[in-house]
């Protein structure tokens, strides 16, 4: 094949390079810059090598917030994925119920993060909030601003409320794409409802569920706004997840070096987990 050399093609490629440079590479390089150097302002930098990385990797504070982060994400996935599938299974497949359910399901997804946080903060206040007041009236000693357990409970409940819909919508789309003939074939075989779920519906939903789990992992692992508004990371550091801790370090204490190192580590953890997860989930699809 003869290739014609046409330098004009660069005109189509350059805008993308520029765009990517401005929105990804340049900000990231600034962080890299801070991660390896010490600065005292006035554009004076001193080379520190891997000192900040070592400091972060050995710091108990980082270990604690990373642990909280994994625990939170794990609980979120463990609740939202099965719950989302269960709700999708009970949704109507045709008729007027479909648009009604879809609109109702989408509502929480349309609310801005900080509004969700503020809403739940007021909703859960033990003295005036509907949830907090009701729980206390029922005899529970509930106060999310004081008790660690209650703070976690409220944060998780808020995230489940906010994001389960996403899993529902994705699962529902997966379910809708299964041809009716599959259900008929199972009926002819005399397969039970459970067998239909495990042998037909789950395998057919595999791809959308992979996407759902990935999205929920990434979002919950990087969660910031909602717990920031709801608990501010408290009581104490009980709900200070990675990003909240990071912002405290960077903007609260102005430890720019360690904070930059921490954000790079944070970034690589997200990247690594996503990659490992995606490869595992898609491994069986490879030989198609």
């Amino acid at each position: 094949m003869n290739k014609t050399i046409n330098q004009k093609a660069w005109f189509f490629v350059i805008p993308v390079f520029v765009l990517v440079a401005f929105n990804a590479i340049i900000p990231l390089m600034t962080v890299v810059n801070y991660a390896f150097q010490e600065t005292f302002g006035n554009n004076v930098f001193m080379w520190e090598g891997t000192r900040w990385f070592k400091q972060i990797m050995l710091s108990e504070r980082f270990h604690a917030s990373l642990g909280r982060q994994f625990l939170f994400t794990f609980i979120i996935l463990f609740i939202q994925i099965p719950l989302g599938i269960a709700i999708a299974l009970t949704m109507p497949k045709e008729g007027i119920g479909v648009p009604i359910c879809l609109v109702l399901m989408s509502m929480p997804l349309l609310i801005p993060w900080n509004v969700v946080g503020a809403m739940w903060n007021i909703f859960a206040l033990p003295d005036i909030g509907f949830l907090g007041h009701s729980l206390n009236a029922l005899g529970f000693d509930y106060n999310f601003t004081q008790q660690i357990g209650d703070a976690w409970f409220t944060t998780i409940l808020m995230d489940v409320w906010h994001w389960t819909s996403l899993v529902v919508l994705l699962s529902y789309a997966g379910l809708q794409s299964i041809q009716p003939a599959y259900y008929q074939a199972a009926e002819i075989d005399g397969a039970s409802r459970w067998a239909v779920f495990t042998k037909i519906e789950l395998p057919k939903m595999k791809k959308v569920l992979t996407i759902a789990i990935l999205l929920r992992f990434m979002d919950s692992f990087m969660i910031y706004t909602e717990p920031f508004v709801l608990t501010g990371g408290g009581p104490g550091n009980a709900t200070a997840f990675l990003s909240i801790d990071l912002v405290k370090m960077a903007l609260g204490q102005f430890d720019l070096g360690p904070a930059a190192a921490m954000s790079l580590i944070y970034f690589f953890i997200v990247l690594l987990v996503c990659w490992v997860f995606y490869t595992l989930m898609m491994r069986n699809e490879g030989n198609q």
Binding site: A181, Y182, Q184, A185, E187, I188, P203, K204
Partner: peptide, 19 residues
């Protein structure tokens, strides 16, 4: 249908995907 001892083949290729 389970009690009728029938089998059916469809236009789409219907098999259990994980089997």
């Amino acid at each position: 249908v389970q009690k009728r001892n029938v089998s059916m083949v469809y236009q789409q290729f219907i098999n259990y995907p994980n089997f």
